[in-house]
Amino acid sequence: MPLFEYKVLPAPTRGRKAPGVKTPEARFALGVEDLLNDMARAGWEYLRTDILPSEERQGLTSTHTVYRSVAVFRREVVIPGTAQTAAPDTASIPPRAPDVIETD
């Protein structure tokens, strides 16, 4: 069974200007695209984007909850000296007995 390591980064909150990219939506999409492509070049696979609560201090004594968007990436960990397989090894798993429902 493959092992993975994960990296969680803040999702972009602003777009990026570029020639020919005029609308705010297109600039935002370009910012997200840049993040995904940069991570892919570094060997990370994009999994999903989540919105998670973060409790932060407000003033000296109180806290409030802020919701943050994060992008989750993963890549397979290669352990030296082990055989990496694409599918899990099922030979060592004993066959399961069929479920039997008894009736009166």
Rank of each mutant, 00 (worst) to 15 (best):
I93Q: 06
R75P: 04
R57V: 13
A97P: 02
R57P: 09
T63G: 07
L36Q: 06
P95M: 13
E76P: 05
R74F: 06
A11N: 03
A26D: 02
P94R: 03
A11L: 06
T13I: 14
R16N: 08
F4H: 09
A71P: 00
T90M: 15
V21W: 00
L36W: 00
M39N: 06
I79L: 15
F28S: 00
P80V: 05
Y46L: 04
R75V: 07
F73E: 00
V32T: 06
R68E: 13
Q84S: 15
P98T: 05
D104A: 14
K17C: 08
A83N: 14
P88I: 06
D104H: 09
G59S: 04
R96W: 08
Y67F: 11
L3V: 15
A71Y: 01
I51V: 12
A97I: 11
G43T: 04
K7H: 07
V8M: 10
R41H: 15
S62C: 14
A91G: 12
R41C: 11
D50N: 11
A71N: 00
V8W: 07
P53Q: 04
L35F: 08
L30C: 09
L60M: 10
A40Q: 12
R16Q: 14
P95A: 10
R75K: 02
T63P: 01
G15T: 01
Y6S: 04
P88H: 07
F4D: 03
D104S: 13
D38H: 12
R68Q: 12
S69P: 09
S92D: 14
Q84P: 07
E45G: 13
L30F: 02
E45V: 14
Q58Y: 12
K22W: 14
T63Q: 08
R27P: 00
R74M: 03
V70Y: 05
R48E: 08
V100G: 11
R16T: 12
R16A: 10
V70N: 03
R14M: 15
A86N: 11
I93A: 07
D50E: 13
A87D: 15
